[in-house]
Design a binder for these strands. Sequence first.
DNA 1: GCGTGGCGTATGGTATACCAAGAACCAGCT
DNA 2: AGCTGGTTCTTGGTATACCATACGCCACGC
Lengths: 228, 228
Amino acid sequence: MADTQLKIAPIGEGLSLKARAYDALKTAIMNMNIYADEAELRLDERDLSQRFGVSRTPLREALAQLDQEGLVRIVARRGIFIVRKTKTEILDMITVWAALESMAARLATQHATAAEMARLHPLVDKFSQDEIARKLGEYSEANIKFHQAIIGLGKCPLIVDLTNGLFFHMRAIRQRTISEQDRAKRSIVDHKEIVAALEARETERAERLVREHTLRLREHVDRFVDLD
Amino acid sequence: MADTQLKIAPIGEGLSLKARAYDALKTAIMNMNIYADEAELRLDERDLSQRFGVSRTPLREALAQLDQEGLVRIVARRGIFIVRKTKTEILDMITVWAALESMAARLATQHATAAEMARLHPLVDKFSQDEIARKLGEYSEANIKFHQAIIGLGKCPLIVDLTNGLFFHMRAIRQRTISEQDRAKRSIVDHKEIVAALEARETERAERLVREHTLRLREHVDRFVDLD
DNA sequence: GCGTGGCGTATGGTATACCAAGAACCAGCT
DNA sequence: AGCTGGTTCTTGGTATACCATACGCCACGC
C-alpha cells in the first residue's frame, strides 16, 4: 500500500545556505584539534566564502551564530578567531553540567518509565564486559552516551539542549583527559549506583550521586588536565 | 590624585549598528506585553530598517541573534514572529533555574566571603520592613534581585549568564503571576532560611533550600498561572 | 639606531540590489 | 457558487560593492 505515491521529496537539500555553512563550519571546528600548537585559529570571511562557494552574507550569519555560541570570536577589523576555552571556563561548564544532569536525574525518578530506565543497562554493562578503558576514545564516547541518556530521561528539552552545547565545547578536552584505569573503574561503579537509585525512584539519592559523580570529574580535570 | 589623566573615552558611541539594533529590539520586546491579545507579534525587516534608520543587514544580524536566543522566530518568506513561550517551556525554564541557582548556592558556601554574604541582608530585610507585597511589581523585582545576588555569590560567570537569559524570558510571566500575600510571606521566610544556611556554610542545606524554594514557585506557576 | 608619521592593505561592518518562494487575490471556467 | 490557474505582491535569503579602521611596512628625521 505504500509507494502508490511518488515521493520526490529529496530534490533540493532544502536547507538555507546559512544553515549549511553553519553545519560545515561547526563540524570543521569540531574535527580540528584546536589545542594543537600549530592549529590555525584564524578564519577569514572572504577566504571561506570562496572555498564554500557562497557569498559572505550567509557565511557571516553562520559565523555570527558560532560567535554567540562561543565557538569563535569575531573582532571588528581584526579577524575571526576559533576560541580556546580556558581551564576555568571548562571547569565552569562541568559545574553547570553537574547541576543540570543532577536535576535531570531528579526528574527522571519522577517521570521516566521503568522501560525507559531499562535502556540504561546496556550502556553500563557494555563497559564491565569490555576490557576496561580498552581505548580512551571508546570510554569517553560511551561515558557521554550514558550521561546523555540520563539527561534524556529527565524529559526536559531545555536541559537536553543546554547540556548538548556543553558537551560540544568539552569535546576537545576529552582528548587531553588521561583516563586512567582507576578512574574508569570508579566511573563504572558510580554509574551502576546511579542506575540503581534511579530505578528505585530514590530521588534525592539519584540527584546526589549524579552531582557528586560529575563534580569528581571536575575535580579530576582541575588537578590533572593541563590547558592554556 | 584622580583626574590627572584626561579621560576622553565616550567620544563615539562605539557600538556597532548591529549591537544597537539588538539592544533596541530586545528592550522593545521586553517592554511589550506580548501576551496581550492585541499584541503585534509580527515584525518586518524593511519596516524596522526604515524606522531605525539603518539598512537591513545589521538589523538582520540582530534579529538572527534574537532568533537564536528564542525571543523571535524567523520563518523564511513568511515573516518574523515574536515568540510566546508555552507554559511547558516556562516551567522547564524554572526547573533549570532551580538547578543552576541551587548549584550557585552550593558554590557560594564554598567561595563567598562573609562580607559578600552580608550584602544579602538588605535584600531580605527590605521586605519584612515594607508592607508585604505592597506592589506586585516591587515584590517581583526585589525577589529577582535577591536570587540574582545569590547566583552572583556562586562566582560562576556561566551560571550568571544562563540565568540572566532565563530571567529575561520569564519577565512577561511575572505580570501574570498573581502574588498573593501568603506566597510573599512564605517567600520571605524561605529567603531568611537560605541566607542563614549560606552564612553557616551548610552546603547541602543551602543547596536544598534554594532548590525547593524555586521548585515551589514552579509548582505555583504550574497550578495557578494560565498561559497559551 | 630608533622613534615617528604617513600611507597602503587587510578585514570586518554596512548599504543596496536582486532572487525565489509563499500567499493572496482575481479572472475565468464549469 | 465554487474550484482552478495564474499573476502579483510580500518577505526573507543571497550576492556584491563600498566603507572605516586597525595593522604593518617603510621612509624620514633626530
